[in-house]
Amino acid sequence: MNVITNSSKSVITTAIHIPFPQTFQSVRWARKPRWLGTAKSKLFRIPPRPVIPKEEELELRRLNNNYRTQMKSIRNYLTERYHVKYLPSSNVEQIREDFEKDFAQCNEINTKWNEEIKVLREQRIAEEINKNIEEAKKQLNEQIMLDKKNLEKAEEEVRLEKEAAKAFITPDTLEAAIEYAVNNPVDYNYAIDMEGNKIIGKDLNSSKL
């Protein structure tokens, strides 16, 4: 492909290269699903209760409480500041007006694109129709030629058959044919060598060949 933009080039160069993919095994990314139940070997295991020293427990609780309070406060602050609901311009008329304005702009761009595409499309369709007509004409000619050829072939066959039919045995010539066959017996009981020469044995009457 000749048309590669800069961005697609960089994507290609930064892609991870795995030299021998068959030597890699994918990591199991999720825990075993709950419905598979407890493993047989772990079924009757009773995990010991964790024993945390009192002072450590108190300190951990204090830190955790502080953390949760602070996170809650920060989350609340960010929500109040950035959530659409709390934005100063969040009156319905304004939002609708903005939307309509944006929609009109998008519509204009879309119409422009459609017109551009329409010219291209009509051009393409015209080209396609011409191409199809040419193709059809070509096929028709070929078909005519083929039919002609077939007819000639058939007529030739018929001619040959007609010629061959002269030697056919009819009820009128049957008697004569029998007479001829009786008078001229043929014996094929001979051997041939690699060159196709007939080797006639001593028992064979050469006159019967």
């Binding site: 450590e56 300190e59 204090r62 830190l63 309070t69």
Partner: peptide, 11 residues
């Protein structure tokens, strides 16, 4: 006091 950071430890 709810101080940012570690604050005053209990222990």
């Amino acid at each position: 006091q709810i101080a940012y950071g570690l604050g005053t430890p209990i222990s």
